[in-house]
Amino acid sequence: MAEVINPQNILEEISVSDLLRRALELKKAGFRFSQAHAVYNSKDNKYELSYSFSDYSTYQLHSLRVVVDLDTVVPSITEIIPAAVFYENEMKELFGVKIEMISADLQNKLYRIEVDTPFGPKKEEA
């Protein structure tokens, strides 16, 4: 039997204002940035953003969850974690999440799609 290292995934709900502080703390604690993604919750009409960090040696997955309204401006974590640049551009382009101060803001030209925010809120038919 091989040793199994499978710690319980941690999901921590935080507010937008705590995002940068917690990301910095996790980085200082030796976590690497693993991924970030957005979910559009059509029931509550909100975005759920998840930022996942994991540790190379303990395999611990620690996710930060930020729930924001559609027009809330979210600060970019690229200042702290440069590797997050593609993830944040993706959120911005596909979901329409308002993220400011991305270190390399591609201005919705990451995938260069014709449709506006295909994963975001459905536009009312005029």
Binding site: A2, V4, I5, N6, R32, Y56, S57, Y59
Partner: peptide, 29 residues
């Protein structure tokens, strides 16, 4: 570590990380 690389790319630089150790499928055996 700073760039968050994974897989053989990370292992070639001495980072001992392999998700099979998480024990999904039959990897615990």
């Amino acid at each position: 570590n700073a760039l968050g690389a994974v897989g053989p790319f990370a292992r070639a630089s001495g980072v001992n990380v392999d998700m099979r150790k998480l024990g999904y499928a039959a990897y615990p055996h």
